[in-house]
Computed example of a mutant assay.
Amino acid sequence: MSKKNKKLCKEAKNYLEAIRKNKYGKYCLTVEMESYTDLGCLLSALFHISQQSLFLKEEKVEEDIRIDIYNLLDFANKLIPFPELELLDEIKNISR
């Protein structure tokens, strides 16, 4: 293998480290977050965007199905325990 290819492989390996096999042989993706609260906010935004996209008229989805999906996403959004996530952030900061 040429020096150029070795260098390219070494650099590519650094980019591919985010996805690796765990001890069970499953691939895992590591995502870095500033805090537990940030994770909750990200999930909430994901649910909110999904809910809003259901009402775009471009898709030919029956209204009943869209309402059911919207309600399910709304329920899932309400399950995000923001006070507990904030508490975990406080505990993490205290333990440093």
Rank of each mutant, 00 (worst) to 15 (best):
Q51G: 05
P83S: 02
L8H: 14
F75M: 08
I49V: 12
E90V: 11
S50C: 08
K21N: 01
E63M: 09
C9F: 11
C41T: 14
I19L: 06
E84L: 04
E32D: 14
K78D: 09
K7N: 15
Y15R: 09
G40H: 02
Q51T: 03
V61R: 04
S95G: 07
G40E: 04
L85V: 06
Y27L: 10
K26E: 00
N22G: 01
K6E: 08
S53Y: 06
K13F: 10
N71S: 10
S53D: 14
E11V: 07
F47E: 03
K60S: 06
L87E: 07
L46R: 13
Y27G: 00
D68L: 13
K57W: 05
K7Q: 13
N22R: 01
V61I: 07
K6D: 15
K21A: 02
L42K: 07
E59I: 09
K23A: 01
H48F: 11
R20K: 13
F55N: 05
L85W: 01
F75N: 12
G25R: 04
E90H: 04
A18G: 08
L42I: 07
S2V: 10
E59A: 11
Y27M: 05
K57Y: 05
N71E: 13
E17I: 03
E90D: 07
L85C: 03
T37K: 08
N14M: 08
S44Q: 04
T37M: 05
F82K: 03
I91K: 09
K13R: 09
D74G: 10
A45I: 12
E63Q: 14
Y36W: 15
R66S: 02
Y27A: 03
E34S: 11
F75G: 08
K6F: 11
K21F: 00
P81K: 01
F75A: 08
N5G: 10
I19Q: 12
S35N: 04
F75H: 07
L72K: 08
L16M: 13
S2Q: 10
K92H: 15
S95Y: 09
N71Y: 07
F55Y: 11
K7A: 12
M33K: 12
A18M: 06
A76P: 01
K6N: 13
D68E: 14
L39D: 01
D38N: 07
I91S: 06
K6Q: 10
K26H: 01
A18E: 07
L88F: 14
I69M: 04
E32T: 12
I94F: 05
M33H: 13
I69W: 02
P81G: 02
E34T: 11
L29D: 01
R96M: 11
L16G: 05
D38M: 15
Y27K: 04
L42S: 09
